[in-house]
Simulated scan of single mutants.
Amino acid sequence: MTLSYPVGRLLAMSASDQKTELRRYLQIARDALVWKLDGLGEYDIRRPVTTTGTNLLGLVKHVTACELGYFGWTFGRPFDERLPWSEQGAELNSDMWATEDESREEIVSLYRRIWAHSDVTFETFDLDSVGRVPHWPAERAEITLHKALVHMIAETHRHAGHADIVRETIDGAAGHTTAYSNLASEDGAWWAEYRQRLEHSARAAAERWEN
């Protein structure tokens, strides 16, 4: 099996280089998540697009609290601002949407301040430093910074993927980053024909395999 990221290269990295690589992947996801808000009005960044209420600004708000949890509280580095939606007794799912009193600027700015707080954790602790996740079961609450980074990379990229679909549903905008779309084509007519071909294939498959 051919790996796109050779294991030998990873093993040859110093601990510092490994940390730099992990931080890079986390930052890509952070930037992508915030970028998905660009160019949309207040209603569209807040409106629930799925049955479970998934919305763009709520995704940013959620990941903000996650970063504070895994890179702040877990490693004994509290933050000097309150996040009421992440405190004991907070309304269920209140970290997944923004109220009319919470501005886009307020939430995005808070996210950036907390990721700066997280970055200090990365600079202060080694990858094998151990912290304790307050909300995890006691038998597995102790984790290394390396595991916390892997966890938050997965978490943030997963929600960036949610944001991709939500944004495309709202106005058709798609792409991986501001500099690199990672799309097969930039031509709208090509995508319309492509989608039509997939629709035709799906219907043909249903007729073949379900009848």
Rank of each mutant, 00 (worst) to 15 (best):
A154I: 14
H159G: 14
Q88K: 15
R208P: 05
G53K: 03
D187S: 08
S185K: 06
V34K: 10
T169W: 10
E67P: 03
H146F: 12
L198C: 11
D44Q: 11
E123S: 15
D164I: 00
S16P: 02
V49A: 04
E21S: 10
L145Y: 00
L37A: 00
H176C: 07
V150E: 08
L149T: 01
H162I: 02
E142K: 10
E102N: 00
V34G: 02
F79V: 09
S14F: 07
W97L: 05
L3Q: 14
M1C: 09
S103P: 01
E102P: 02
Q27T: 06
R132D: 05
Y70E: 01
E42A: 02
R195I: 14
Y70M: 00
P6V: 03
G53Q: 00
R140N: 10
A116V: 05
W190A: 11
A205D: 11
M152E: 06
S185E: 10
R82N: 12
H117Q: 10
A204I: 04
D164P: 00
T144L: 12
Y180P: 03
R158I: 07
S4T: 11
E67Y: 04
T51D: 11
A154Q: 14
N93S: 13
W35P: 01
E100M: 00
H200P: 03
G53T: 01
S16V: 11
H162E: 03
T64P: 03
L10M: 12
Q27S: 06
R113N: 10
E139T: 01
Y194K: 15
S201K: 13
A202K: 04
L56D: 00
